[in-house]
Amino acid sequence: MIDLAPSSTTEFDLTFSRVTKFYGAVIGLNDLTCRIGPGITGLLGSNGAGKSTLLKLASGQLRPTQGEVRIGKLKTTSTSAKRLFGYCPDVPNLYEEMTGEEFVRTMCALHGFPDDEVRDRTQAVLQEVGMADRAKRKIAGCSHGMRQRFKLAQALVHDPQVLLLDEPLTGIDPGGRQEINDLLFRLADKGKSILVSSHILHDIEMLADQILVLGRSRLVASGSLSEIRRLLDDRPLVIEIIADNPRSLAAELMTFGQVLGCDLQENRLRVRTKNASDFYVRIQDLVVNGRQTIRQMQSLDEGAEAVFEYLQQGKHSS
């Protein structure tokens, strides 16, 4: 089992045991085994990688075709388990006719709290997500970022032990992202288990202590941020360089151990390298020492897709 919380086992750990999910003949998640404990765990993957399937299994909306998903000892499909988690779905629509406050209050009341407690919790959570001053607005007139915050509020309002957030930062401005990140850090410090999905590496890097990387419905990598970074450092990368003297540069680069090959097209040099971090340090030395003049340099496959593709290849070859 991949243990993303080895040092801190709690009674509310989210556990996937050999979980496979089929949608008819299509596989949504393939043989996932892991345990997610307190702290922030990032769930990274390109579109269609299986992130939402994993979160829907964790929130009991889907039943696994094989294996089981539990929060503590409870199956996530059970009614009791639903008291333990808060789920923020990746859907654009809320109850459009309601105000944000009415929406959060109704979602809170559906947990069975008494009226006065519903009122207090609603006010507190709206304050926490930074929407107290805009709570009386009709949801129909709210921006995407405001909707995201109301969705987050409804997931937090019953003070769950486990938070399942499906792309919660989509559509939120940088300032807002920092506020939500700070909120999630505070919750993690209180011992909550938080699983956040995103297809953007940077979002997850900013947030998560531990990362699960999904690709084509499989877990392709997992571990701490530094472990994932080490894996990514080893991946081959194509870097395009525009230099004053590309031929001479190519000759020098070929002496680098990290360079796998160079391809000259007019004045553009395409370099295939492994261990990009080391490569960048060495090419920086060349420039600083005045031996080469570089006008432009860019990585051609830095996108999330390329990262997942690489990790997936590693998974298959291992």
Partner: peptide, 8 residues
Amino acid sequence: VFLLTRPI
């Protein structure tokens, strides 16, 4: 989804 993820 908001109803199905409540403890009802």
